[in-house]
């Protein structure tokens, strides 16, 4: 919602877990099925389905985990953990082809997306209920449980915490330089996506590391290139381009 739509690129790239039902078009033994899944475990290649709204070229994806939890005739209940952008329907189809009998996906449910799991999800009626409580009783509590801060979705990114005086220039798209940094989470590499946060823990922007965390700790100069800004300009006072201001 609002600014938080900018998190969708991160969310898209997150690993995901699915539970799906696959129907095979012929008899396959348990060991054949295991062999088939083993062929996909790890890195595998996938061409997006014809209907998909992306370029149809072969892409490398990762199957981190596969679990067959039930077999009922030709229907198989699968739990899969895959990298972002994997088409599970296509994976089922390709598995069917590999097994020589063909197959397709009957049902699919996403149970985890990056840091968030199915257990935290709310139903439509809960959202409706929360909105009604708010409108009729001016009670915000349920709505606050249902609408979560966008920071929860960006937990996968390494953090850089900046000084209040640096916030507004980042909101205007300026790169983050070493003097504006209050704290840094070690371990990231040049080119990694970084979450830029205020001292209060609000997301300001997502940026691309211009140096590794260790280089930033050692050196001077530009540290992170601002990529997508979440925070509205003017949330923090400007302290740039006009010499020393009161806020700095």
């Amino acid at each position: 919602m609002g600014s938080s739509t900018k998190a969708s690129a991160e969310v898209h790239g997150y690993p995901k877990e699915y539970v799906c039902v696959m129907r095979l078009h012929g008899r396959v033994s348990e060991s054949e099925l295991e062999w088939g899944l083993t062929q996909f475990i790890g890195e595998f290649y996938q061409t997006p389905p014809i209907r998909a709204n992306v370029a149809r070229r072969v892409r490398k994806r990762v199957l981190y985990e596969a679990e067959v939890s039930e077999i009922e005739g030709r229907d198989i209940l699968l739990r899969l953990v895959v990298s972002g952008g994997t088409y599970v329907r296509k994976l089922c189809h390709d598995l069917g082809v590999l097994l020589g009998v063909g197959g397709h996906m009957l049902e699919l449910r996403r149970t985890r997306i990056g840091p968030r799991t199915e257990k935290e999800a709310v139903r439509l009626f809960e959202l409706q209920h929360a909105l009604r409580e708010f409108r009729e009783k001016r009670d915000e509590q349920s709505l606050r449980r249902v609408i979560r801060p966008i920071e929860d979705l960006l937990e996968y990114l390494p953090r850089v915490v900046i000084l209040d005086s640096a916030v507004d220039s980042i909101c205007h798209g300026a790169p983050l330089a070493r003097p504006g940094i209050a704290g840094i989470e070690p371990g990231f590499q040049r080119g990694d996506s970084i979450g830029i946060y205020t001292l209060k823990g609000e997301i300001v922007a997502v940026g691309i590391a211009l140096k590794s965390a260790e280089e930033i700790l050692r050196g001077e100069g530009l540290a992170v290139k601002t990529d997508r800004v979440f925070m509205a300009r003017g949330t923090y006072p400007p302290s740039w381009g006009r010499g020393k201001s009161k806020a700095s």
Partner: peptide, 9 residues
């Protein structure tokens, strides 16, 4: 509403 999301089932 501006800095939030709903995890919808």
């Amino acid at each position: 509403l501006n800095y939030g999301y709903v995890l919808l089932d």
